[in-house]
Design a protein around this nucleic acid. Sequence first.
DNA 1: TACATTTTTGATGGGAGCTTGAAAACTAAT
DNA 2: ATTAGTTTTCAAGCTCCCATCAAAAATGTA
Lengths: 230, 230
Amino acid sequence: MRILLVDDEKKITTVLKAYLQQEGFQVSTAINGLIALTMFKENPFDLLILDLMLPGMSGTKICSEIRKISSVPIIMLTAKVEEEDRIQGLSIGADDYITKPFSPREVVARVRAVLRRTNNETSPLADVISYDNGLTIDNIQHEIRLNDQEILLTPTEFKILGALAKHPGRVLSRGQLVEIVQGHDFDGDDRVIDAHIKKIRQKIETTPSNPQIIMTVYGIGYKFYPSAGG
Amino acid sequence: MRILLVDDEKKITTVLKAYLQQEGFQVSTAINGLIALTMFKENPFDLLILDLMLPGMSGTKICSEIRKISSVPIIMLTAKVEEEDRIQGLSIGADDYITKPFSPREVVARVRAVLRRTNNETSPLADVISYDNGLTIDNIQHEIRLNDQEILLTPTEFKILGALAKHPGRVLSRGQLVEIVQGHDFDGDDRVIDAHIKKIRQKIETTPSNPQIIMTVYGIGYKFYPSAGG
DNA sequence: TACATTTTTGATGGGAGCTTGAAAACTAAT
DNA sequence: ATTAGTTTTCAAGCTCCCATCAAAAATGTA
C-alpha cells in the first residue's frame, strides 16, 4: 500500500512517515500541492493524506484537482476545529478528516479504516438487506423485520445491529461498538454494550438464552451470524 | 492499568491521582521530566499523563523521548487555550490533549477513551491466512477453520496458535509465548503453555498424541508446521 | 539398559467474563 | 413539573477459562 503524505511541516511528515512505515506502508512525502500533484500523476498511490493549509495550492484545491482524475481515498488534516472546514473538506471529496493536534496512532488507525472501507465498498451495500437467518434490515425505512414481522428497535439498538450485520461474521469488540454507537468521547463503561445486546436478543432471537444471530466471542466481543443453520 | 502522572503542581497530581485511583487505576506521580523518564524505563506503564509546562525538560521533549522507545498512549495537559496554535505544530505524538482548567472527571473520561481506542487497535497481521495443512486463521472473524470446519478456540489458545503460525517453522520458547500471551509482567510458570498446547492439539490435530501441526522441540519450545506432509 | 530431564495428561480451585434483572440517570415531549 | 421511553449503571448468578499440581509417558544421555 503506497501512501502520499502532503504537509509543509517537516516535523509532522517525519513522525507520520515513521509510524506509517512501521505499519508496513510505503510512504512518499511532498511539501506543497504542485509537487504532490505531479508525484500523483507519475506514480500510483493507494491513499493520500493532505494538509488543508498548504503554501501555494490549498489542500482543498489539490483535493478537487485529484478528484478530476482519480477516486483515490483522501484523508484531510485540518488545523481548525471549525465545523465549516470539515464540511468543506468532505464535500470536496475527502474520505475522512483528522483535526490537529492528533496522535500518529490515530492517523494510522484512520488510514486503516479508510482503506478497509474503500476496499470493501466494491459491492456497495444496498439500502435493504435480507439475510438467510430471516432478518431484514431496511436502512431507508429504518426498520427491522424478522420473517416479515416488524421488530421495533431503539436508535442505539438499531445502530449496534446494523454495525454487526454490515460485516457478517466479523467480530467487533465492545470498544469498537461503543465508538460506532456513542462516538469517540464517551466516558462510560464498555459493558453498556452487553445491556443493548441483551435487549436486541430479546427482540430478535427465538431463544435469547441460546442466541443464533448475535453470537458472543468470549473475551473478544460479538459477531453476526447471517445464515440460518448457525 | 498503570498510569504515570507527570506534573509539578502538587495540587493537580493529588486531585487527579485520587480520582483515577477511585476508578481502579494504579497511579504513580513524577514532578519533572527526568524522574518521569527513569520511572518509565524501569516500570511498565499503560498510559502517561504529561503536563506541557514542566521545570527542566518540557512535556513535548519528554513526549518525543518516550516515543523513541515506546508507543505508550500519552495525554497532554496544556496550560492555555491561546497556545493551541503552537501545540498543533509542535507536539505531535500525544494521543489526546486536555486544556486547563479541566475537571478531574473529564480527565478520567479521556483516559478511558484513549485506553479504549488504543486497545482496539487490530494487529497489523494479515486478515486471513491459509496453510497447506488445511488450517485457516481468520483474524477478522476471530476463528480457526480446519478444512472449512470451524474450530472454537479460547482467546489464549487463539493467541498462541497465531503467534506460532505467524512464523512457520520457527521455534518459540515457552518464555516467548508467555510474553506474547500474558504480557511482560507475568510471574507464573512457563509450563502454562504446555496446558494450552495440549488443548489446542486436542482441537486441531487428528491424533493429538502424534501432532502434525504444532510440533514439540525438545528442550526448546514449540513450532508450527505449515505443510501437509508433516 | 538405567537415569535424569522434559513433556504430556488429567483433575481442580479460583478467577475472569458473560448474562440478566432491576434501578438509576438521561432525554424529549407534554 | 410530569411522564414515557431510552440509555447506563450496578449487583448477583452463572459459565467458562486458565494456572497449578502431580502422576505418567517420552526423550535424551551415559
